[in-house]
Design a protein around this nucleic acid. Sequence first.
DNA 1: CCCTACTTCGAATCA
DNA 2: CGAAGTAGGG
Length: 732
Amino acid sequence: MTTSIFDTRHYKYPQNFLEMKPKLTRLEQAIKKLEANLIDTAETKNIKLLKQRLDSGLGLKVDYASELNPDQLMAATTIDGKVLVIAGAGSGKTKTLTYRTSYLLENGVSPKEVLLLTFTRKAANEIKDRAKSLLASSLSNQELSDEELADDKLPTDKALNSITSGTFHSFCNMLLRQYSGLLGINPRFTILDTGDSEDAIDLVHKEKKYPTQTKTQAFPRKKTLQNIISTSRNRRVPIRDLIESSYPDIAVHIPIIEQLAIDFHEYKRANHLYDFDDIISQVVRHLKTNDTFRQRLQNTYRYVMVDEYQDTNIPQKQLIDLICEPDSVSLMVVGDDNQSIYAFRGANYENILLFGETYPNAKLIKLEQNYRSTPSVLNYINALSAQITLGYQKQLYSDAPIAGDKPIFRRLSDETKEASYITDKIVALKPEYDYNDFAVLCRTSFQSNYVQLEFMARNIPFIVVGGIKFIERRHIKDVLAFVKVLYNPNDTIAWHRILTLFKGVGAVTATRLTQAITADNNAFESLLAASFAKKSDQLKPLYHTLTKAQQAETVEAAIEHILEFYIPVLKLIEDNWRERSEDFRVLKNLATEHTSLDSFLENLALDPPNDSVAVMESSDDGQSNDKVTISTIHSAKGLEWPVVFVNSLVDGITPHHRSLDDFEALEEERKLFYVACSRAKTQLYLTAPNYFSSYSGYFDMASRFIAELSADEVTVETVKSPIKKNDDPIWW
DNA sequence: CCCTACTTCGAATCA
DNA sequence: CGAAGTAGGG
């Protein structure tokens, strides 16, 4: 029994643990049940099983046995039934999925039967690309010429391209369009991003003129409304319950919000608009009610793989379950319950824990060999992992011969000192490393400010991950609105956006115009109608622009026409229109990659350029690419660096003060810290200022996540006592 | 419909 | 405390 570094009795732990008990018991039972079905590759019968599989696959091109460790091999070669793979941090998860994909194909599975679902398109492409090169390189003994390789003529290339792989959203989007006939829907719909949804909610709210609400409590903002409606759907919690538990102060408005949610939904259906939630939920609805559709999918996708399963929400789980319902459909979900950090956007960590309950015959495989971190770092993150209350048993291990340095915890007098400590370390280590090898991970983006300042002052090149996305910039959204009405003249949200650009046109006129257009069979001509003659100076040019853009040969040309019209408008509304216009170059560049409006719009919605504006610009100007990464912990998931700094380890920031009195929220914070630390390959520095103060309060205790561990795992370089002296009896 | 005074609300982010 | 967004009068 090791003692913790600091006295943890000084921390107030959530009091709602007892209420949680029934839920936790159920989860524990499901975990236990699945643990009983663990395929332990150390057992003799499983060694035999693996050997058998390999012997029967002697003709295979890829040498699976020598490329994979036994657990990875077991995961890659288990092709039937329902399987959960717990893939610890740095355990070669992507590699395993890659090899499994190739193993399936080599075993005669038709690529059309394979469905691979991920959360980002990047992940989907990576697995596909790596499987391609894997199969291609193993074919090299067949003496293929470079040309043949380049021409995509390889049979394996073709095969892999007919695998269905992508994000949940892109898969469902494809289904809605491809099966539109069977489902009785219009395939020509537009996708609303979160901002568009907010606008739409606002619009519906204004149009419906609900009975006047009490003046005592203001009606919530559109952003809050969107959040409530979306959360209600993704967590399948009725609006009433959600508001009563999470937004108690707006409880008076519950009936109106409930009505608004319904009206918003009808509005979207009437105008062929789908928000991100609809794309998945509508497919789930059809799967539940349309037997032909469900059977069609069940017969098509016989081998389903899901990546990052711990991040799935309820509709996503339902989608998977509906497709994989027959025993004959093979399902392998891969994930790490220690890394479920997205509850705030609807992810349901219970999905991965209840897998054994959902599928009573499911098998469990664990990848515990770590290829990323030194034994010392591993030792630390294993200790963190042990603090997580609920989850599958796991112990990461490494073959690395050298233990490496223990993580270091250091407290500094304030945030400036904290930033300069980090900078000093980077300067000291730089001779051995590139800047690319360093990352500073922060709980909130605000926590990176001092670090950025210090880096600037000392000429350390860096990039900040996160921030405003290219696609979210106002002028980009404006231009896209024009493109959207070209594609779907029913896109009332886009119309509204365009029309309110004009002086003297507000919500009212815009709505009237939009109605006139949709009523007139979506003809742009209605812009010229006599009833709007007063605005004709503005509307005529708009009409001509849209008509010209519609006839344009390419997407890029259409955008050119739009810009001709839009840039003068932009000049009137934004002072910095010149800088902003720079972004249009980027937009046009993106457009050249697409031949049709729908593929252009679809791609921007489902696969937006992920970089912040700063990144997109700096990648253009030929600057060196060797930079320190400053990122939020959330954005760092899945990545790794040799040297990682985690800052602001003050109780109230990490864990965040808003999670301190909720058991589940605090557990998620713990997992977040686990994600941060498990990014490190060789050096891990943990830092905290002595205090942090803002509107939200004054915090001066070291993070409980540091305090809970023993000095066996971490070197404490603390200057000041980490804990404020507290002589109160502990039971007070 | 626009502008200003005032209230409100604070984290993280993918599609 | 400060930014962002709302309400309400002009």
